[in-house]
């Protein structure tokens, strides 16, 4: 029973972070048609900024909010400087097929990831460093036994929940959110009805940058910070988005929690070595039943 609770709680807390990463990927995928492999590179970079600020004597919260702000600026800049010029070339013959439209931005984002990691190495050196948590990481003690649930876990889950509610409200209730959903649906039509698609694209990169920076801030207290520590988080977040359906933000969140729980239960009940094989198993089962993820759309073809 204790193992079960421990697996459940750590899975939920990790799952919340993966949900955030997946959500960031889905926002950029819908808003700009790019699977952004650089996303956790951006998060790593802004977490380093927070870490540098905190080490220079600022409070945790200064670092926290500056990192979120830096993450969103960096995301917007990457779109304006690199991805927008790239997407303007879509009319060339090579980019007219779907696979190339997906592959070329992936390569660009891998380049961005490499550049950000190298830059972080040059500025802050490659050694792992710790990153502070805003809440204690010891378990609550209830009736003289220590629960496998820390106040930091509570902090993670509540802040992720708040973020998810805010993003949902933003997309459903605000004019800009509506414009972004329209752009995701059909860029050409959105532009014809007066939406500045360049702006909404940059905005989706900015939002995703902030969301993934938040994920970086929340995961580094348990995993330490180095230029490469977040690579695996990106792969798991991407898998979560694929499991849930890349077209659906709710699916991304669902996928994040599913993966968090799968990883945690496999680690607790089997062995850490089985984690990736189990992820692959879950992914294959889901995609064989629903090739576009649990909450993804129908697989429609046009002639």
């Amino acid at each position: 029973m204790d193992t079960f609770l421990a697996a459940l709680f750590s899975g939920t807390s990790r799952g919340a972070i993966y949900a955030l990463v997946a959500l960031g990927l889905v926002i950029v995928w819908r808003g700009a048609g790019v699977v952004n492999f650089a996303q956790m590179g951006q998060a790593m970079f802004s977490t380093y900024i927070a870490s540098a600020l905190i080490q220079n004597g600022n409070s945790y919260w200064v670092g926290f909010f500056v990192a979120l702000f830096a993450g969103s600026i960096l995301g917007a800049l990457l779109d304006i400087l690199i991805m927008r010029p790239l997407s303007n070339k879509k009319k060339t013959e090579l980019l007219s097929s779907e696979s190339m439209r997906a592959a070329v931005p992936v390569i660009a984002s891998l380049g961005i990831l490499g550049a950000l990691q190298a830059l972080a190495g040059i500025i802050w050196a490659a050694e792992e460093r710790g990153f502070p948590a805003p809440a204690p990481q010891e378990g609550f003690s209830v009736a003289s036994s220590i629960m496998p649930f820390t106040s930091f876990d509570l902090f993670v889950i509540s802040i992720v929940a708040a973020t998810l509610v805010m993003t949902t409200l933003f997309f459903k209730r605000t004019g800009v959110g509506l414009a972004m959903r329209a752009t995701a649906l059909n860029q050409e039509v959105a532009r014809l009805s007066g939406i500045r698609t360049n702006f909404t694209r940059a905005l989706s990169w900015a939002i995703s940058g902030a969301a993934s920076s938040l994920a970086g801030l929340l995961i580094t207290p348990t995993s330490n910070l180095s230029p490469n520590t977040l690579d695996l988080v990106l792969i798991i977040g991407f898998t979560a988005a694929v499991v849930g359906g890349l077209d659906s933000p709710a699916g991304a969140v669902l996928g994040g929690f599913i993966l968090g729980l799968v990883i945690s239960f496999v680690t607790f009940y089997l062995s850490p070595e089985d984690v990736f094989i189990s992820i692959l198993g879950v992914l294959l089962v889901v995609l064989i039943v629903k090739p576009r993820g649990i909450l993804g759309g129908k697989d429609a073809r046009r002639v």
Partner: peptide, 12 residues
């Protein structure tokens, strides 16, 4: 599978 779904699966 197609596009990013295939990319994700092969990555895993």
């Amino acid at each position: 599978l197609s596009g990013p779904y295939l990319a994700g699966t092969t990555l895993v």
